[in-house]
Design a protein around this nucleic acid. Structure first.
Lengths: 193, 193
DNA sequence: CATGAATTAGGACAATTGACCTACGAGAGT
DNA sequence: ACTCTCGTAGGTCAATTGTCCTAATTCATG
């Protein structure tokens, strides 16, 4: 197997483990075991744990961009695209109830650790923020597009956090419906602003 | 100094450190140093780190109850009480931007660690949830009081998470105002439901 | 087959972790 | 003055951490 393949496998395993257990709680040994490598061999591919973290964040940036592009291709209407974003709360509800939002929990952890990569992690949020803002602008709400984007992002984060604490599927569905209703109201106001 | 005083000092220091750095990232040595005790002496007061965590959660339950009681005494109107809750986002904005919500981030961390105390931490959320629900019931919304309470809790959590990621004070103020507007709308609907 | 670069394995390293033990000292009550 | 309890200090313990090194193995190419 090429070093590039191994490296990608490591990043994907680290991505999953950092999400499920957290960055700090995942050890070098955990990562090596997850891809069936000796610790020594692991070191050949990544010198430090922070290197792995940086690679994971970069990897998430790429896959997130792909996901956003995909939503844009699959939905011609901006409103439908925003709904696609909202509905990941339902599609990923099992994982969210177990481990929270991958982006939100990583940002929180790195903020507490005052880790150098915390701003890089926040860029993952910025990706969603800018994408959502573009959709709201396309809806004719260019003036407050960023504020609307932050509002949607805020609600999805709040739902994720409470879903983790209470493991309540009905709550998720209710709040997702509430976000759909809110979005419809914003669409109706598109010319009024 | 009595053992009880020392114990209380430990719990208060642990409360602060668990919030600022996270539970796992705070070591026995950190805790002992924070209250100027040797590690051996620290062991006299708390046998395990989990014991400290349980004491911190219990301590937070007590102080949270006191805070909620205080809001109830200081505000005769249920709506004013809910606003008092909402406005902790502004009062504590500096800490929230640095370390997030104390309850939300602790629940997230313990969920990832699959820690035995994760349900105890969620009880802190339940405290706010039930208190908010009582206020909404007093507003004449007994039928959906719990759902409204969860909605308010959800929004405050979302604001806290994004505030940590983006360190944006204007965003906090904007969303707090939006919550005040939402609350006023709910109050107007008190008889219509 | 031979060479050499790429990849792997298996440790070693100091530092830190949570946990535990024993000995010392201060001070109240007799 | 004596004891006895409470609180403290310092050190030990195995286990684990992130990091690093070196020797072996693979494998394509000459």
């Amino acid at each position: 197997m090429s070093a590039e393949d191994t490296r990608r496998q490591i990043v994907e395993a680290a991505d999953r483990l950092f999400y499920e257990r957290g960055f700090e709680a995942t050890s070098f040994a955990d990562l090596a075991a997850a891809v069936h490598l000796s610790r020594g061999n692991f070191y050949y591919h990544f010198k430090t744990k922070d290197d792995v973290l940086r690679a994971v964040i970069t990897h998430r940036m790429i896959t997130t961009r792909q996901m956003l592009d995909d939503w844009e291709v699959r939905n011609s209407q901006p409103a439908s695209r925003i709904i696609a974003f909202i509905e990941i709360l339902i599609a990923n509800q099992a994982k969210i109830m177990a481990h929270g939002c991958p982006v939100g929990t990583l940002c929180n952890e790195l903020a507490k650790l005052q880790h150098a990569a915390k701003d890089d992690a926040a860029q993952l949020f910025a990706l969603f923020r800018d994408w959502l803002a573009r959709q709201f602008a396309a809806l004719g709400r260019a003036a407050d597009a960023d504020q609307l984007a932050m509002h949607v992002l805020m609600r999805s984060q709040g739902v994720a956090t409470l879903a983790t604490a209470f493991a309540d599927s009905a709550f998720i569905h209710r709040e997702v419906q509430s976000m759909r209703d809110w979005l419809e109201m914003q669409c109706a106001r598109k010319d009024a602003v």
